[in-house]
Design a protein around this nucleic acid. Structure first.
Lengths: 244, 244
DNA sequence: ATATAAATTTAGATTAATCTAAAAATAAAT
DNA sequence: ATTTATTTTTAGATTAATCTAAATTTATAT
């Protein structure tokens, strides 16, 4: 008699525990989101495999921590993982990553367009805002901003379904002598670089002409607006242009 | 020779460790902020002492967890704590709490005013947004919203220095028969209650007249706009009015 | 005033995320 | 084809925040 009750209780418990397990698997922590985002961006929007060390580098953590987290992400179905062979995102992982990046970039637009931030101030705050969970919030924000396609640094904003519009941009470094281009993005988004660009009146949309290239140190002279300035190889390798 | 180098290195280390300790003390975690906020609100904006159990209740956690956290908060100088006697906030704790509440309420206004949310949808999201750290962000948000003084539920928004403007509101329950009032806030902010109010056309700013009170169950009939409705004691005890 | 109940704190464990140091696997170089 | 170097993984510890269960303190009731 008692044993029957006990057995049925145990079966109930088993179901409950299984159910809780499913819920836990469905939840995603802030840390997990950050790993997934790093894998997405290091792997060119989730298309290529990335190494443990590169993730550790990007997140300023240790390789052993990355291995631990990768295993958890693999258990939860966000990444494919073979020991020693690096990881790549599953469809599920790509969706999560694209959502986080979408939120990050929309918030950046909001900060610049509505709250008077400059493009070198928004990254840090968007790193926090990208983890806010509310579908309605992000869709309303998108509407408020009139459905922007690029963030203040020229990076494309994934749409609701995670698709991203690729633009055919190249690094200014690769532009030929005499060629013209429009500045459409930056690779380095650090405040230091962005402030340098502000100082020299280089902004998204600026018309740039390569006046001359110097073989010795790969520096170049470019025309920007009225004036001409000399920029280093480092600058040229961090500015994206669309060929005109 | 070697020993001198060793000793000077040890002294350096000691300084560094001390410095890191200071930094750790300065940082505040999301969890700590939530405890401090709960103590602030349970203790009527930090004016009275609150018990361990009431905090555990508010945060849906166990009393033993609260004790642990309280000790940490006391170490960091956010609360005054005598074992078995409850806690109250220090000046430092009050500032933190007021900042979090300020952010929470400003974000709620933003969601309703700019992103088309209704007052019963904003609490959960504001719980997330209140932890975003950026002074400029919150001040710009304040400006964008034209310096609101109350959130969508009628609760006052602390100013930059943490001061809060108290309004002389009373519960509708305490309004005399025949008396008139203006609805200025809600005590219960649950979606269920707020939706009830929406359904019966009761909103902030509505004119209310008490037509009659029923001794038996403390229900009352009130006039709201054109019509009259019967409300329960529970409703009357969760609506704030300003006497006219 | 003493017994009982309620609230609070301690002790010891657990979980997520991290670390260091050592071991194992892979890649590069002779 | 070995040796060496690099990368990655494992093993074992640590920290923050939590929990249960037991012990202690305070409050309440006879």
């Amino acid at each position: 008699m008692f044993s029957i009750i006990l057995i049925s209780m145990c079966l109930q418990m088993k179901k409950i525990i299984y159910f809780c397990g499913l819920i836990m698997l469905a939840m995603i922590t802030l840390t997990e989101e950050n790993y997934i985002k790093a894998i997405y961006q290091l792997g060119k929007y989730g298309t290529v495999t990335v190494s443990t060390n590169s993730i550790a580098d990007a997140l300023d953590t240790k390789a052993s921590s990355v291995t631990d987290m990768i295993k958890k992400l693999a258990d939860k179905g966000y990444v494919n993982y073979k020991p020693y062979q690096g990881v790549n995102l599953t469809q599920k992982g790509k969706k999560v990553a694209a959502d986080v990046v979408r939120k990050h970039r929309l918030w950046e637009v909001f900060l610049v367009e509505k709250l008077n931030f400059s493009w070198d101030e928004v990254h840090e705050i968007a790193e926090q805002l990208e983890h806010i969970k509310s579908e309605k919030l992000i869709n309303e924000l998108d509407k408020l901003l009139d459905y922007p396609t690029h963030d203040p640094h020229g990076d494309p904003i994934p749409d609701k379904s995670g698709d991203i519009k690729k633009t055919d941009k190249i690094l200014l470094f690769n532009l030929e002598e005499r060629a013209k281009g429009i500045c459409v993005g930056v690779k380095d988004t650090s405040p230091a670089f962005l402030k340098y660009l502000d100082k020299h009146n280089i902004a998204l949309g600026s018309n740039i002409t390569v006046l001359s290239k110097e073989d010795f140190d790969d520096s170049m002279v470019i025309q920007i607006g009225e004036g001409a300035i000399n920029i280093s190889q480092i600058v040229a390798n961090n500015l994206f242009v669309k060929v005109q």
